[in-house]
Design a protein around this nucleic acid. Structure first.
Length: 587
DNA sequence: ACGCTTCCTG
DNA sequence: CAGGAAGCGT
């Protein structure tokens, strides 16, 4: 950090340099004689925070909601559709109503009396999941496993029943059924394997909430019905696997960081579920999960943290910054979910694809159809292309970074998708470490005071802390393109204003620190007003303004490409970026 | 074809 | 600020 380019006003009200410098770094501040000669009469060299002309924005203003550094708010909510969820996803089955099902959603599970009690209990568990406020995720998980146990037991019974019915069929039909049962056993084996690996429940206080709605049915019903149902189930399972493989292939260039068990232990991610209004199950990923990613990313860990209270009690922030060893708060008490689920539109869109994928997995592939795959593919492509600060940048073109609804990830704790979810969570956390942050953006804006057309080399020198991929490079270039755009728009506007105001001589056009033009520029590139804008920038601004003034006064603006000549002039006025911008601690 | 840039749009 | 189209230069 070059003291020569910082004024005392760079400090926030808290006395801490917003750019990470301490007062000690700047105490030796001396005006740079090379930069002090602005050549503009009346200019003050330094901007003080008490200047009545340039407002010193409070730190909170700089870190506005749209500008909050490296933060993603875990806010989206997962609404589990009662027709597809609850215990759904345990098995690759599609629930369907039995012939005895009533219009109000009650289903005949067709169990014998010996299992009706268990069935009722399972029903209670399922419904309780969707209606019980204050029910922890772990409870849900425990209950889900109880459901699973009940399902397995019921399967045995119904297998017997099925075999008995099969006894009266022809030999061909019997062969088909045996074949199907063989498939069924294989499927069960597969899913039991998944279930076994991912059993993370250890809840001690199990709750049996009451039903609020009765639109559920047993997921296992589909397994015991017609051949087509079974084939559909097999197809769903295969589709689910296909989606999984697709996701895997996208992430294939990324290292597997941990085993599933390690993930569960090390992240110790608190699982909370909550039920909001409308009896919709919400599973939230809140609290202080600290994900430790080994080796190369150890110093740049991503983690889910709860933002300190100034941001609001119940907002939890996904931070992509290197704060691996902070564990700000214990998990928030369950049930405070109103603010937790505030929508954050800016962060929602680019997680759509992965959420599609995860929901697909969550549903056990129960949504069969080409349309679903197309939707997933479309959204996933949009994720690959779309890039937004803090949630986007990629190490390689094949490794998109996405913002994933953590609650959805959490919902994937349902056993049959746990392996996939672990993998996705790990990769998600891994990817969060990449890319440009708001801090980089701020730095780029300050760099603009020196260079309007930075070369790739300069960018690489100044942003050495990011992995320079084509994406990152393009984004940085785009940033400066946007900076220029704003710059030239302001210049044209003020040049036209000067003409309208009757400024006759171009020599009367200057850009001082008290001018509206400078204020507008300073507000854009130095919003916190914590940076001492070099006088050279004022000089360049003056030249630019005059170029526009002359061109407009000469009527050159009738030519569609009249600005190009100006651009050509301005691009030659770039200065060297101070070494402080290239130092390892300037970022 | 590719990279860079501006322009336009959201 | 990002995405995309279009233009330009190499």
């Amino acid at each position: 950090m070059n003291p020569s380019v910082w004024s005392n006003g760079m400090y926030s009200s808290s006395g801490i340099c917003l750019d990470g410098c301490t007062a000690e770094h700047l105490s030796s501040f001396q005006p740079d004689p090379l930069l002090s000669d602005s050549g503009v009469p009346g200019d003050s060299v330094f901007v003080h925070r008490d200047s009545k002309d340039i407002k010193m924005l409070p730190e909170s203003a700089y870190y506005s909601s749209s500008d909050a550094a490296s933060s993603l708010i875990c806010s989206s909510q997962l609404e589990l559709n009662p027709t597809r969820n609850s215990t759904a996803g345990h098995l690759p089955t599609r629930r369907h109503q039995s012939p005895a099902s009533s219009s109000c959603g009650h289903y005949d599970w067709n169990l014998n009396s010996g299992h009706q009690a268990k069935r009722a209990r399972v029903e209670n568990i399922i419904k309780g999941m969707t209606s019980s406020p204050g029910m922890h995720c772990t409870d849900v998980m425990t209950n889900l496993h109880e459901v699973s146990d009940g399902m397995q037991e019921n399967e045995r019974i119904q297998d017997q029943e099925h075999m008995e019915r099969s006894g009266s069929d022809s030999q061909t039909t019997r062969k088909q059924q045996e074949s199907q049962h063989q498939h069924l056993r294989q499927l069960r084996t597969k899913f039991k394997r998944v279930d076994g690996v991912t059993d993370i429940t250890d809840s001690k206080d199990k709750k049996n909430p009451t039903w609020n709605d009765s639109s559920e049915t047993s997921p296992r019903d589909a397994l015991i019905d017609s051949h087509s149902e079974f084939e559909t189930d097999v197809l769903k399972y295969e589709l689910s696997r296909a989606v999984t493989r697709s996701v895997d292939s996208i992430f294939k260039s990324m290292p597997l960081l941990q085993t599933n068990d390690e993930m569960n232990v090390e992240t110790d991610m608190p699982l909370y579920s909550s039920v909001g209004k409308d009896d919709k199950l919400r599973v939230s990923c809140c609290g202080n999960a600290e994900v430790q990613v080994p080796d190369v990313q150890t110093e740049a860990l991503s983690l889910v943290v709860q933002k300190p209270q100034l941001e609001g009690d119940d907002k939890f922030i996904l931070q992509s910054r290197s704060r691996a060893h902070h564990c700000p708060r214990p998990p928030a008490p369950f049930g405070r979910d109103s603010a937790l689920h505030e929508d954050q539109p800016s962060e929602k869109n680019h997680s759509t694809a992965l959420q599609h994928a995860l929901r697909f997995l969550h549903n056990g592939g129960s949504e069969v159809g080409q349309a679903k795959f197309e939707a997933f593919d479309t959204d996933w492509n949009s994720v690959k292309v779309r890039s937004k600060i803090n949630s986007r940048c990629v190490r390689s073109p094949q490794t998109p970074t996405v913002s994933v609804d953590p609650m959805l990830l959490e919902s994937l704790s349902l056993p049959h998708v746990k392996i996939e979810s672990d993998f996705l969570v790990k990769n998600y956390m891994y990817m969060l470490n990449e890319g440009l942050t708001t801090h980089h953006l701020k730095k780029a804006k300050l760099m603009f005071f020196y260079t309007r057309y930075p070369s790739s080399l300069i960018l690489k020198m100044c942003f050495h802390d990011v992995q320079f991929t084509r994406c990152i490079t393009s984004q940085l270039i785009k940033w400066f393109s946007n900076f220029r755009e704003f710059y030239y728009i302001q210049m044209e506007k003020f040049a036209r204003n000067a003409l309208l105001e009757g400024v006759a001589d171009v020599r009367g056009l200057t850009v001082g620190r008290e001018s509206d033009l400078f204020k507008a520029l300073n507000m854009h590139y130095n919003k916190a007003n914590d940076f001492q804008v070099p006088d050279r920038f004022l000089e360049v601004a003056k030249i630019t303004l005059r170029e526009f003034y002359i061109a407009i006064s000469m009527g050159k603006d009738r030519d569609p490409s009249w600005k190009k000549a100006i651009y050509k002039v301005i691009c030659k006025l770039d200065s060297d970026v101070p070494a402080e911008f290239k130092s390892h601690h300037s970022g």
